[in-house]
Design a protein around this nucleic acid. Structure first.
Lengths: 238, 238
DNA sequence: AATTCAAAGTTTGCATGCGAATTTGGAATT
DNA sequence: AATTCCAAATTCGCATGCAAACTTTGAATT
């Protein structure tokens, strides 16, 4: 049974690859995804592709186009606000629980993550900046002792990988004071102060939301302008 | 394209049916689910069954048994605590946003939901009690204007359908003062008082968590006892 | 020139088939 | 009697095949 694929099923591999392309922008929003093409590109049959697309749809990365398969979900500012409202309470909860339950373990591994984060910014690599931020927050989810937090936050993180990627491709860097905020949060957790940890955690997310909202609005305006330009071109051509 | 199944794809239908059986207890925890059997039972091929199982696994209702397919995830008290910790902040957020953004609409439809809830308890039907509770909370998610809240809470609700079902099968009723609490929450939302709505919402979930924790602990103890009894019987037989 | 309608082309969802990996039942051995 | 080991059975993941449904194309009609 369990047709034992070596390490990861084809479905998972295909899922990861498509998601990566979406997050990196190789597959831009509104791109139509066709099973045959993906299957050919990844050299698998349509079956694992179809299943991977179902999972992606389930998690909101692609959406049913009315009656023509699926398209990559566009990033819009409204969804961004929604996601950050949730992350604010979810990350706040994680910080509070971490301070209550895992002040000790936080001290041990936390400092290294902060260092890695600053190094990532210094390195200039987008991928490292994004994954360092993810690693820090996921570390706190782990400290919280509540496995469901990481689970509930996971779709949002993928969404943010997309947004951070899109922003970085324009702005070329993430505001570097976020690692000062991370350090302050960690310090409150290590000190075992739940209320302060939660407050700092929520403030951190709220600030990030405000920062990103500006960028995303700009991206969206540009996308709208492109849209208009294209539709004008079409009208002229047709 | 879109192989246009009339209303719902077979995958979704199968998914719903399996999930319903899990929530109702027809498929008890640790039951092994075999694709062929399910396919035969629902009179479809293995393909939609396999995909439905993937979705169920993705959402935590079934889990990979080491190397023998999937089993129904057991309900344990630890997971219950995790889920309620999250619901507390998520529902609190929903109440706050609802009070900020939708005090008006809340008045119109809210009263009817409360009435239906009390009727459901009077009727004695488990299914109606559960779905009335779900309907009320989902109503608030909707009022919040944040579509991601409902999405984030969805897996937890299925989990709670399972727990409420299991508890009801033993206790035969849900504490009926929850509808007094619901009424109070609604009143705060209608009054447009975000802070009070959030506080009441969180307290409501916290109380429910405490109530259910007792029942679930009892269920778990009983399950453990069964487990021991079975393993003794097996030893005696073998 | 614009409109209508049918045939071809796409693309999907679902069924079936196949090979691989694991478990199981029982025979052979100690 | 217990243990070892091999073959049959089970079960899964993935590939391929097929019919249905939508879109597009192009020709015929007004």
């Amino acid at each position: 049974m369990a047709g034992a694929t070596p390490v990861q099923s084809l479905v998972e591999q295909v899922y990861e690859r498509i998601l990566a392309e979406i997050c990196e922008g190789t597959l831009p929003p509104n791109t139509r995804l066709i099973q045959d093409e993906l299957a050919a590109a990844y050299e698998v049959s349509r079956q694992p592709v179809q299943q991977a697309l179902m999972l992606l749809r389930d998690r909101g990365f692609v959406a049913d186009a009315p009656k023509r398969g699926v398209i990559v979900t566009p990033l819009d500012g409204h969804a961004l606000r929604d996601v950050y409202e949730i992350r604010e309470v979810l990350d706040g909860l994680a910080c509070r629980l971490a301070a209550e339950r895992a002040a000790g373990p936080a001290r041990e591994a936390g400092a290294a993550l902060i260092r890695q984060g600053r190094e990532a910014i210094a390195s200039g690599s987008y991928a490292r900046q994004i994954s360092a931020d993810l690693a820090f927050h996921q570390f706190i989810y782990g400290l919280s002792g509540n496995a469901s937090i990481e689970e509930a936050a996971r779709p949002h993180w993928h969404y943010m990988r997309r947004i951070m990627g899109a922003v970085l491709r324009v702005e070329h860097h993430i505001p570097d004071d976020i690692w000062d905020e991370h350090a302050a949060i960690l310090e409150a957790i290590v000190a075992g102060e739940p209320v302060r940890a939660e407050t700092l955690g929520r403030a951190h997310i709220a600030r990030a939301a405000k920062t990103f909202a500006v960028y995303v609005q700009a991206l969206q305006d540009r996308a709208d302008a492109d849209q208009r330009r294209r539709s004008l071109a079409r009208r002229a051509a047709g």
